[in-house]
Structures are given as C-alpha cells and as structure tokens.
C-alpha cells in the first residue's frame, strides 16, 4: 500500500527517530493506541491497550510505540499505573484496571526541545526538556537554532456513567477538547471536537479521520475535515468502528517562544 513499508532504509531511519522520541516519525507512520473496549459496565473492569506506529492504523506491522510519556488519568483526577506493560516488536501493550466510575484519559505525550548549535567550529545537536533550555546547552555554543516538538497520542474509556473531568487541557502542544463525549459516539450522530494549540483555538487545521480495518477493504475511506475559527471540527461517521483522528501544526517562533511543531492523534470508537 505504501512505499514506506518496503523501504528498509526508511524503516531503519524511522526506528532511530522513534528511539529519540522525536515527533516527526509519524509524518511517515501513524501513531495509534487501540483500546480493547471503550464502554464498560460493572464495578471493576480491565482494558488492554495496544500502541504502535504503522501506515495502517491499528495494524501492528511496523514499530512499537515508546510509552515514556504515558499518563492514565482517572475520573477522580488520580493518575493510574499501567499494568502488564510489554514492548513487543510491532506494538507496546499494557492494561488499565478501572475501579472508579467515569471517564479515563489514556495519553502518551512526547516531545521536547531540539537545538542545533556550533561549538569549536562543529555543528552539534542537543535535546532536552523545555525547562532545561537554554541553560542545558554547553558553554560557548553559538548559532543556536532551537524548536519545540509536542506529540500527543490518546484514547478514552468509560466505566459506568460518562464524566468530563479528564478533558481539561494542559495548554501545551496540540490538544483535543471533546464537545461530543468521546465514549458517547454512535452512527448517525456527528461527533464534534475542538483542537487547541498551546491552549488557543487551532483554526483552519486539517484533520484526518481514518477508520480501522483497511486490510479488509480496498479503499482507505479516509475523511478530511477542517477546523473552524474556534478550532471546532465535526465528523459524520460513515460506519461504526475504531477511528483515528490526526492533525499537525507548525507555529513560528515569536519573542520568548520557540517555534513549535505539534501533532495530535486521538482514537475514538463509534458504536452502531
């Protein structure tokens, strides 16, 4: 399907980038999380999540996702530890034990500052967190060019009744605030979502909507929608299924702010 899949060189390069947790990898490969269930009942439930990077969403055939930035936020505002974490060749996997009623946000947030600089006549690279920049650069570095990257991969699950406490944005990178609850999506009712970049509405952004199961059909059947002035986009679901929603944005630097390269990858399930 994609020429990338058959290129050992590009695959190797993508692997190296993934190890460095840089966000650009998914320009070639899509980053996704696939929960085993999104809507659950009872007092106690488990959800298994696969996380991978590949051309076909939810098809684990390329690279496992590093989960260094994994946070699982419960409906009561408490963070949960993933259980049974395993990194396979093509996918990482972990379980989430749900014991509180309400909605959980399972997010892997990666990124940081990448800087290139000249020291003793040689061009060098530096990586670090925003807090470490610029004091983490070596003494005497000149011609510094730095940029910030932020990548979010997330999904949502609900035990029992819906809640919305986990939707509060952090104000960093590209984030999605649901207007339709992500665990209340059904066929024949459009889903509405708002994208924010550093906490402000991300207007005029293209959002790619891809449904899983591409292996079993000939057309990818992808949808592209554009956010309005308030950063809002709406999706008419053509079928039930697991959907991947993706957007990316580049924000030029301004005084005191580094240029930002951010991307969002959200996974939601639409029930029949």
């Amino acid at each position: 399907m994609s020429r990338y899949r058959f290129s050992p060189l590009l695959a190797a390069a993508a692997g190296v980038i993934a190890l460095m947790a840089a966000p650009l990898v998914a320009e070639a490969h899509r980053a996704w999380m696939a929960p085993s269930s999104t809507v659950l009942s009872g007092s106690d439930a488990w959800v298994g999540v696969d996380a991978g990077m590949s051309n076909g969403v939810f098809i684990a055939d390329h690279a496992a996702m590093r989960l260094d930035g994994l946070t699982i936020l419960g409906p009561d505002g408490q963070l949960l530890e993933p259980e049974n974490m395993m990194r396979g060749r093509y996918r990482s996997t972990f379980d989430v034990h749900l014991t509180k009623q309400g909605t959980y946000r399972i997010a892997n947030v990666m990124g940081g500052v990448v800087a290139s600089y000249t020291l003793n006549g040689e061009r060098q690279r530096w990586r670090g967190t925003p807090a470490e920049y610029p004091q983490g650069l070596p003494e005497g570095a000149t011609e510094v060019e730095a940029s910030l990257s932020a990548m979010r991969v997330e999904t949502f699950v609900t035990l029992g009744d819906l809640s919305d406490d986990v939707f509060t944005p952090t104000g960093h990178g590209l984030e999605m605030v649901p207007l339709t609850h992500p665990n209340d999506l059904v066929l024949d009712e459009p889903g509405r979502f708002r994208l924010l970049v550093d906490g402000e509405p991300a207007a005029g952004l293209e959002v790619t909507i891809a449904r899983g199961g591409t292996r079993y059909r000939t057309s990818p059947e992808e949808i592209t929608v554009t956010t309005d002035a308030d950063g809002i986009y709406s999706v008419e679901w053509p079928q039930a299924g697991m959907y991947w929603m993706h957007a990316a944005v580049q924000v030029p630097g301004a005084d005191g702010k580094l240029p930002l390269s951010a991307q969002y990858n959200g996974v939601v399930e639409v029930l029949p």
């Binding site: 659950l40 009942s41 009872g42 209340d184 059904v186 029930l271």
Partner: peptide, 13 residues
C-alpha cells in the same frame, strides 16, 4: 452480572 450490561448497547447509552 452487571459487567455485560453495556452489551445492551442502545439502552446502555
């Protein structure tokens, strides 16, 4: 027994 109530999908929602 409540673990499978969500399978009555339309009613559950």
């Amino acid at each position: 027994g409540k673990d499978w109530l969500k399978d009555i999908r339309t009613w559950w929602r």
